[in-house]
Nucleic acid binder design. Sequence first.
DNA 1: CAAAATTAATCAAACGATTGATTGAGTTTG
DNA 2: CAAACTCAATCAATCGTTTGATTAATTTTG
Lengths: 214, 214
Amino acid sequence: MDKDKIDKKDHILDVAERVFSDLGFDGASTRMISGEAGVNMAMLNYYFGSKEGLFLAVFERKISSFQTLLQNIGNEGISSWDKLEKCIDNYVDRIIVNNCFQKLINREMSISKHTDLTDKITKILMINVLEFKKIFDEGVKSGSFHKDIDTQLLTATIFGTKNYIINAPHISSLMLGHDIRDEKFLEEKLKPRIKKYMKRLLKAYLMNDNDNTN
Amino acid sequence: MDKDKIDKKDHILDVAERVFSDLGFDGASTRMISGEAGVNMAMLNYYFGSKEGLFLAVFERKISSFQTLLQNIGNEGISSWDKLEKCIDNYVDRIIVNNCFQKLINREMSISKHTDLTDKITKILMINVLEFKKIFDEGVKSGSFHKDIDTQLLTATIFGTKNYIINAPHISSLMLGHDIRDEKFLEEKLKPRIKKYMKRLLKAYLMNDNDNTN
DNA sequence: CAAAATTAATCAAACGATTGATTGAGTTTG
DNA sequence: CAAACTCAATCAATCGTTTGATTAATTTTG
């Protein structure tokens, strides 16, 4: 049946996404993926052609759902700071849900070589990055934010902080005293904590009176 | 000769570091490393015991010099803020020089599987993380920094911001308008800019009067 | 409608290649 | 000469992939 076929392919992709992001492309074996998915090894090649084909399939499935979420907020008729708060809430909510895919993206983006894959990913990630930057620049223009802020490095802080927490689980877990892959902890404790922290950090940098001369 | 032996080991480590950071631990093969280093494959095991031993040797060679550096700063008799500034200067200087090594660390740490390797790396990295955190906590205790700051997430911001700039070269380059792997740009422009930005960000969050209730 | 032909899905088994590691014989060195 | 070093050859294990047989569902045919 068509439906069953799609469901099974989807199930394989779910498992592959997790295993790839846990162990990396080279670290994950087709035997392990097929084993955990409960399908015969040959099915992977039957459906996806090759290990690389499977990897690409994982990417392309997720990538479509990624676009056009922050953009709506940017166009609302509220203050720059309110937009920023909304974007942070939205972004933190979203990345926590997809955190294993985020790891996958990050690993792939750390490769220096310029390929079709990195090109695609870059383009998609830039949408989010530029949306934050737009709000920063707009706030500077309207006088809500300080004039001499570094909006480019500030985006690096937002995305970098998130990546570090998600992407270095061993260190994060040690620092925070919990396994950050524990979903309950993630949802109930970490998520609101990250939101609160990021808002305060941004507010202090963007809006408070401070001596910025040096 | 003792000198020759050390030089040869060092040469192998140089090559291994580059290959590992290009391809990851799993992606790099011992044959490739020994081939590029111009030594027999058995030499790797002879000198370093195993592939993992080689990887650890690469790691420990670089990390040992850095770890003692932050600690010295932490013990100086200066204000918490001055320590922080010194640490940032030092840290930024160092990571820019070793950015290919940083990529290596990042890639390996994003692997979830808990092995002896990740365990060792985690332990070593935690030394730096905890050194920053110690200064934060000390500053809070002495009253120089705000009481209700999130020192744990703040370390994530420091290391995460750095990682993002170094480790996502495609995005960083697009944002900054230069190829961040251009050494001259890195040294003359980016380095001082990151230092200035990080200090201002930290100062605003840690020391400025602000409404932190929410 | 029933028999035959076709197709897609699944499986165990095996493929050649490559992996990290080891061996034992040979060479260099102090 | 003994110890340290170097090497080609080889090890078992694992890798991604392919194969040929089998099953079940679908379509075509008489």
